[in-house]
Design a protein around this nucleic acid. Sequence first.
RNA 1: GUGGGCGUGGCCUAGGGGUUUAAGGCGCCAGGUUGUGGCCCUGGAGAUCGAGGGUUCAAAUCCCUCCGCUCACCCCA
Length: 419
Amino acid sequence: MYKTPRGTQDILPAEQAYWRFIDQQASILCQRYGYQRIDTPVFEESGLFYRSIGAGTDIVDKEMYTFEDRSGTKMTLRPEGTAPVCRAYIEHGMHNLPQPVRLYYFAPIFRYERPQAGRYRQHYQFGVEALGDADPSLDAEVIDLAWQFLASLGMKMLVLQVNNIGCKLCRGDYLPRLKQYYSMHSEALCPNCQVRLERSPLRLLDCKNPSCQQIAQNAPKIIDHLCPQCDSHFKQVKGYLAYLEIPLEINPYLVRGLDYYSSTVFEIQPEGGGAQSTIGGGGRYDNLIEELAGRATPAVGFAAGIERIILNMQKQGIEPPPIPQPKVYVAYLGEEGSREAVKLVARLRRAGLGAIKAPGGRSLKAQLKQANSLGAAQVVIIGEEEAKRGSIILRDMEKGDQKEIPQQKAVTLLRDFYV
RNA sequence: GUGGGCGUGGCCUAGGGGUUUAAGGCGCCAGGUUGUGGCCCUGGAGAUCGAGGGUUCAAAUCCCUCCGCUCACCCCA
């Protein structure tokens, strides 16, 4: 028997209410904030991700779904959303639009990882990107949007962690200090961190290994070594967030796993969340577009994992609004009844009212039983006699009473009921 | 990639060598008289007990291998 590939899942009708709800809240909010939807291809040339996410990151080194197409071009299933949006920004000359350009996406993401709670090989992310403006208020806007988004879903007890990981300038000064400090403790570092020391020293700070964490405690923090510009930027972002009344924690160890981030970075987690608790994160990537196209374009963005959001909604007992089901069920008896039922169901549907016809060849009792378990509020019954008479029986399932009415009145009556 | 737990009808579970022709609950279908739901009662369909191999007179039950699911590490959304 065929099954969903490892780490993927079917989103069954029973779960769709969550997805509709989240999708709706996201697009309503984006509209309100002036972010426009963009959809990019599910796969891109592999190079885009190598150059943006960075060799040496887990994503690029071991998590990408890469294949050659028939022409021999290396393609990769999108492992994150920012780089494709930047590619689109460049490709379509969006620097000619009023800056910043505000975009959002809701798209599947692919990473070859061992699946576990809240982690999938195909998962969905809702993300926003604001490209073409370096103003700190834009950082705050993106964080605010992220925060309001989660709040609009009814999520509570969220923690926002913020850090600033500096620009090239700060790092030029800071990284040597960091490396120097860590070189003194290199024997005590985990094997991973031995490698990080050379390849991505910043990420030494957020190693989860206990002994590494101890070392990190006394390590110089980049937050204390920001250049005047970054320092001021960070202060302003914090200031704006205070005006917006968004509580935050400064986490000097927060470093994101993608190389393109600079300056502001942030993550949102549920309070006391365990493994895979991060439901959203983002930050500035002021150098990414320049690296991809040569034109300096500051930008800031955010992305949230939908599956993790749903997981947390369920943990918090949040129920999404249900997806409306047809309220009218048309039961019938006999061939004549079936004909009339088909006609009536069609009339109802064309009038914009949800209706379903009973399956064939069942007793009236069975039909009513099904109507009940489908949650129909009104059942139309067309027996042979009613069919002859040109009438129908309209049964209110909640009250349990019914009346016979002329067929012509059915749509009108049921429409009233629908309102 | 590493480690733990688990694999019995669509779902949840019982059974841990012979009394099992694999049991129960949910769900599905049908009946409980003539054309009427929700409760109740009765019946039915539906399982090569994850796969392959081995031990044994006898395996869902014991052993091995593989596969899958799941949780955790790593990393991330």
